[in-house]
């Protein structure tokens, strides 16, 4: 796998205040890389440093093997960017805005703009200042996508979009991946990342905490089984089972919420020894893993 984005010890300080510290990141060609973290963790600082809007305090980075500072123009020729805090020229219409940016790229994007605008149901002929937040976001998305870049760097791309448009956009990202292009997706909307991302990096307190595939993260999540008994069971007998890592008696003790790591088989067999009124299971979700990373840096 070829690395499209690669940083080594990339660090940015604003005076004394840290933005991102010692970032070692690798985003591979053709993948959708989810960049996750709570507000203020350093996601936007990373992106703005990658795009040379901020100069690294130390460390270095390359995109397409080109230096992020020295070769920024060559990088931008092949990159589409959507800022997290989107600002547009209010007095232009969307069509004028997109035409201007296509001209600056010296490419004819009219066909793609039309297709994308149809797909996102964006009215190109209204002044941008009169557009709603979601529609402004669509203008930013069309701008990032219209020249079919090899790399998309998207900072919170779906904010302001309605659920239908969000689906449409995620479908589009998957198409982008199918074409072998790369997506660097900063987000804090977990179901969205879970759906499209191949790999995920988590930043917290200005540090990259971990990077892994979405599947691996899901594997980390523990399933829970909630069993309601006709009579009060002995929680200790369940806690003794090898696959049970947590027992939480509820409802006066007739209900047990069991956290499972491994197979559910022995739990079911032990429960069957008594009269069971109801049983429900819930598989592990990415959200729990992420929350554990967000709140406790030492988790996992």
């Amino acid at each position: 796998m070829v690395a499209v984005i690669e940083t080594v010890g990339l660090t940015k300080f604003y005076g004394d205040a840290p933005g991102i510290i010692d970032l070692d990141l690798e985003v591979r060609e053709g993948e959708i890389f989810g960049f996750l973290g709570p507000n203020g963790a350093g996601k936007s600082t990373t992106i703005r440093t990658l795009l040379n809007f901020l100069l690294p305090t130390r460390g270095s980075g390359t995109i397409f093997g080109l230096d992020i500072h020295r070769d920024t123009v060559a990088i931008k020729r092949r990159t589409g960017y959507l800022p997290g805090d989107l600002s547009l020229y209010d007095r232009m219409t969307a069509r004028e805005f997109l035409l201007y940016f296509a001209n600056l790229r010296k490419v004819d994007t009219r066909t793609h703009v039309r297709e994308l605008a149809d797909r996102f149901q964006l009215d190109l002929d209204r002044p941008i200042k009169n557009l709603s937040t979601g529609n402004r976001q669509k203008v930013g998305l069309v701008n990032a996508l219209m020249h079919e870049p090899e790399l998309l760097i998207l900072d919170e791309p779906t904010s302001g979009l309605d659920p239908l448009m969000r689906q449409e956009f995620l479908d589009l990202l998957e198409e982008v991946r199918e074409e072998g292009r790369t997506v660097f997706l900063s987000s804090h909307i977990l179901p969205e990342v879970e759906r499209v991302a191949d790999r995920v990096g988590i930043v917290r307190d200005q540090h990259l905490v971990t990077v892994d595939s979405v599947e691996a993260f899901k594997g980390l999540a523990n399933a829970t089984v909630t069993i309601r008994f006709a009579s009060i069971p002995d929680p200790r007998s369940f806690a003794a089972l090898e696959s049970v890592i947590g027992v939480d008696p509820r409802n006066g003790g007739d209900t047990l919420v069991l956290t499972i790591d491994g197979t559910i088989d022995e739990v079911i067999k032990m429960a069957a020894e008594q009269e069971v009124l109801s049983i429900s299971t819930r598989s592990g979700e990415l959200e729990e893993v992420f929350l554990s990373y967000y709140t406790d840096a030492d988790a996992q």
Binding site: L51, N52, F53, Y81, P83, L86, L88, F101, L104
Partner: peptide
């Protein structure tokens, strides 16, 4: 100040 500079400089220009 308005934040459009990021957008403008995301184009391939020095």
């Amino acid at each position: 100040q308005a934040g459009t500079l990021d957008m403008l400089l995301s184009n391939p220009m020095h």
